[in-house]
Nucleic acid binder design. Structure first.
Lengths: 190, 190
DNA sequence: TTTATAAGTGAATATAAATTCATTATATTT
DNA sequence: AAATATAATGAATTTATATTCACTTATAAA
């Protein structure tokens, strides 16, 4: 027998992300994905049943990767402000160095390919993050508002700063990340 | 002669927005748009040269509409915090009651249909808004940081709250809008 | 009324994309 | 080294979508 070349999955994912960044889901055809990945069109169908499955697999892959980037080896025994700064920096670094992810998610969430159960599964790796917010609220560090509000502020600010950095309206370095974080912290701190 | 029925343009825009909301640009075909608008496919091509032109026209239409919603008859002679609250409420009301707009823009900005000159033209109606921020910074009301930072915070928080409201994680009323605004204000105030 | 002109139609055509499949190439196993 | 199972290929097929066009209908002007 001949084994599958698991590098190909990565190549396919990369190609898909690149094409999405450039042209969105509309411009992302199976033929172009294959060409960009350096394989034949038919080979795509050896690794994925069809386009829908390819897209949903990539979605889960990105979610898991992001959760790892943000949560792996996180030191929980530090003052909350530092902990949130750490989370903020990790999120920004992950988003900025992997901007294609955000671009992909935007398209995914409003596409005919989306699978609601897959979407829900994508949240699972982030559970520890929600627990941190809960705990910070209990200890009166963070505003006593519904989780959604905290979440909206963090996510919203993160998303927009990522875009600003990507569009080169902001240079991302220690100074700018401190300014940005202080704004976020002011928004959510008690 | 027979005149064009200008109501049809509105019907086409509405149909396009609805389809985009449901299925994104991928699921938005000319045949479906026509059917949803209650006209024949061919009629679309009387009002718009092709799909690209339809999409770019709709983009400009939405931008102008939003600028009107936010800026028309704005009372500039009030304390800055109230002025920003007014802007925040108007933006949220406009976004929430017209969520399809945000969904459309998300897809538009990363599609093969985008026309950079049209995109730039879409910013024009918002110039007065930028001037308000500038002035508030001069008067030391708002943090003395680059405009992009202020903008990222406002936009980010607005976007995320809109999504939260749309996904029914937050109910939008006087109370919740006050909480949300206080978070935003804390983020940008000096 | 009649006529001229453009709107409106939807089936037909052209184009493009997803998927299949007969065939070839390659890595394991015996 | 031969046999075998699966990966890989890319042209052919199927399916979907944008656009056109011959024709019909509605309206304004004559």
């Amino acid at each position: 027998m001949r084994p599958k070349d698991e590098n190909k999955v990565d190549a396919i994912y990369s190609a898909t992300l690149l094409l999405n960044e450039q042209l969105g889901f509309v411009g992302m055809t199976m033929a172009k994905i294959a060409k960009e990945a350096g394989i034949a069109t038919g080979t795509l169908y050896i690794y994925f049943k069809n386009k829908e499955e390819l897209i949903n697999s990539l979605f889960l892959h990105l979610k898991k990767q992001k959760a790892r980037n943000i949560l792996d080896d996180l030191d929980l025994n530090q003052p909350y402000k530092l902990l949130f700064k750490e989370l903020f920096d990790r999120s920004m670094n992950s988003s900025v160095s992997n901007f294609q992810e955000a671009a992909f998610l935007e398209q995914y969430y409003r596409s005919p390919f989306i699978d609601e159960s897959v979407k829900a599964k994508g949240m699972e790796p982030f559970m520890p993050f929600f627990q941190i917010i809960e705990q910070a609220k209990k200890e009166l560090i963070v505003k006593d508002v519904d989780n959604s509000y905290i979440f909206a502020c963090m996510n919203g600010i993160l998303n927009e700063f990522t875009k600003m950095v990507k569009e080169e309206h902001i240079i991302w370095n220690k100074k700018s990340s401190n300014i940005a974080f202080e704004m976020l912290w002011d928004a959510i701190k008690n």
